[in-house]
């Protein structure tokens, strides 16, 4: 092998001088631009370039989605009980919606005629981040886990112009019936509509080419494999931990307990999964650490809650968490 390598190196050096003259000669004599082989490869060149370009475009969108989702999560971390949470929620809803209606729609268009798994790797990280933001938003409002179907529904786009009228009718009813309900899905529909209108007027010329509408009648969507969803949910737990600790800071002493029990359920659900893949296992490890932190915080709250004023409690909880960090490692290694 090493012998061969050496040989190759020699060739390599010789190559340059040799090849320069050699190929030029060939271009004149052997390599005929119109030969079928060259023609065939020109065709391959186009195909490859097209696919690579598409991949790169999706990667770019993916990056944008990741950034926007991260911002949404940060905004949600600022939600406090007393303060203007409805305002923040509205902003987050708008942000998530904007991501769906621009970035994800773009991706959906890119992968429309393709195998959903072919380009999954290009947008997988953004998708997980988005699921994390969305489910965090949903949890803060509804105290439960968003369903995969609901997420999928948000990333499925309708193209029909007729959809517009139907939607606006039903939408009005919904609004009247329960104006205060905090269901994000409902909220979405509101703003959703405006966006659909916008795209219809300036972009897709559906009024002009009705025939094309029929052929592309099928809905656009970004398919979410179950595994991506589960990974997104695993990321969510880290945010929940942060939220639990912060909520003590903002004076909400009930939140940590709610979150704690929620995390416990998720943790036991993850543990019950057999033959999980490596990525899931890695996230499960982080999840256990987060859970431990929240449990310690809850413990402190319970034990000291009655005797210490709130503002001191905050200090204590953040301190126990620092201690917990160093403790964690030893505990975890013991577990393993």
């Amino acid at each position: 092998m090493s012998d061969r390598r050496r040989k190759r190196n020699r060739y390599d050096r010789a190559d340059k001088s040799d090849r320069g003259g050699g190929t030029e000669d060939k271009k004149e004599s052997d390599v005929d631009e119109s030969s079928p082989v060259i023609q065939m490869f020109k065709c391959f060149q186009k195909q490859l370039d097209q696919r690579h370009d598409k991949y790169e475009r999706i990667v770019k969108l993916n990056r944008d989605i990741t950034i926007e989702s991260k911002r949404a999560i940060f905004m949600l971390q600022r939600v406090t009980v007393a303060g203007d949470c409805s305002d923040i929620f509205q902003q987050v809803d708008e942000k998530l919606l904007a991501v769906e209606k621009t970035k994800f729609l773009e991706i959906a268009k890119e992968i429309e005629q393709e195998d959903p798994f072919q380009f999954l790797r290009a947008y997988s990280s953004g998708l997980q981040e988005y699921i994390e933001a969305l489910s965090f938003n949903y949890f803060l409002k509804n105290n439960s886990l968003i369903k995969l179907e609901d997420v999928q529904a948000r990333l499925s786009f309708k193209r029909e112009s007729s959809e517009k009228t139907v939607d606006s009718a039903s939408d009005g009813q919904v609004k009247d019936a329960n104006p205060d309900i905090k269901d994000p899905i409902m909220d979405v529909k509101d703003t959703n509509l405006d966006n659909v209108k916008v795209t219809n007027t300036d972009g897709i010329n559906c009024s002009e080419v009705p025939i094309e509408m029929d052929t592309t009648d099928s809905d656009l969507s970004v398919y979410i494999p179950n595994s991506e969803y589960i990974l997104g949910v695993a990321d969510l737990t880290g945010e929940m931990m942060r939220r639990a600790i912060n909520s003590v800071g903002s004076g909400d002493l009930e939140r940590p307990f709610e979150i704690c029990s929620f995390l416990r359920e998720i943790e036991s659900a993850y543990s019950s999964l057999g033959n999980a893949n490596r990525e899931v296992n890695r996230k499960l490890h982080v999840l256990r650490q987060s859970l431990r932190k929240v449990e310690t915080a809850c413990y402190t709250l319970r034990v000291r809650g009655s005797e210490v004023p709130k503002h001191m409690l905050i200090d204590m909880i953040s301190k126990t968490n620092i201690n917990q960090y160093s403790m964690d490692d030893s505990v975890v290694t013991e577990d393993d």
Partner: peptide, 13 residues
């Protein structure tokens, strides 16, 4: 809700 989500996933796997 959660156990449903995870049993779905288990089935998927």
């Amino acid at each position: 809700n959660i156990s449903q989500v995870f049993s779905d996933y288990q089935k998927y796997m």
